[in-house]
Nucleic acid binder design. Structure first.
Lengths: 148, 148
DNA sequence: GTCGTTGCAAAACGTTTGCACACCG
DNA sequence: CGGTGTGCAAACGTTTTGCAACGAC
């Protein structure tokens, strides 16, 4: 009954993944990865704040560099939810983001909803949709009820 | 047989729309609206360059303020095509953007493709998808062929 | 003449870069 | 000890803000 919410990359495996590519394990890298997992999805600045609770000296530059690295390693992913800073989440945390452009709420929805669309797109234009890296905008149920 | 590529808002109607709300017609506002229409879709900086060909003194601050205003008036719309500056286009210019995250190409695709998805979303979560304000990311046909 | 609108300069925001020092392996 | 990784400061691109002057009505 264990759905492995903690994925393949346990505490040791980040080290391994890094070493396989001649990269080095550092406390900062573990902290950033932990922060991304703990926060679900968060901006670099939010991740920085979270990391600094454990290690106040960590600079935001390191957050940016580490997020880029973890993304290249396939451990995290980022999505642009409209304006402002992008949102990082762990790679396995698959979902489509629905952003309400009235109140800004972000709703997560299973990505299977996009499968039909993905097929149709690859059929018509050969475009391979990345179902996991998508932000759709519109109006959430609450705002739809309140508005017009 | 006139499909009114020039929409409801001809040269006079911007003035009317503004006056209806107690706002003022200025050359800058007309120039920005014209630029958006001429460019199809463009960033504020590109729009600024276009406007400055006619009126070099116009400041980019005015571009930003005017784009916000025209958006509130429902005459233009902006889309975030991933990183960097947003892209503005006229409201009627409806399509879905497919952004290749390898080469950055932006493909436009008819928005009808999203109708099924829109229905399913409103069914499951009451979310009203804005079919026109969407950027999907993935890999374009060329990069898919070249890559793996 | 009023008051909305503009231009300019400066600040704010998010991100990147250069460089010397630190520390992983 | 070699070279990767880090912190700091400064630069960068984009957007916003404060304010005095301008100009639409």
């Amino acid at each position: 009954m264990d759905t492995t919410s903690r994925t393949v990359d346990g505490p040791e495996s980040l080290k391994n993944t890094l070493h396989q590519r001649g990269l080095r394990m550092t406390p900062q890298r573990q902290l950033v990865l932990d922060a991304v997992r703990d926060l679900g999805h968060a901006t670099p600045e939010q991740i920085c704040a979270q990391v600094q609770r454990a290690a106040p000296a960590v600079n935001i530059t390191t957050i940016y560099r580490t997020l880029d690295l973890l993304e290249k390693l396939g451990l995290v992913r980022h999505t642009h939810l409209g304006h402002g800073a992008p949102s990082y989440s762990e790679q396995e945390h698959q979902h489509v983001h629905l952003v309400c452009h009235e109140c800004g709420t972000v709703i997560e929805t299973p990505s299977d909803l996009m499968n039909d669309l993905a097929e149709r797109l690859s059929g018509t234009s050969g475009f391979e949709l990345d179902v996991t890296h998508v932000a759709l905008s519109g109006r959430c149920a609450d705002c739809a009820r309140a508005g017009s």
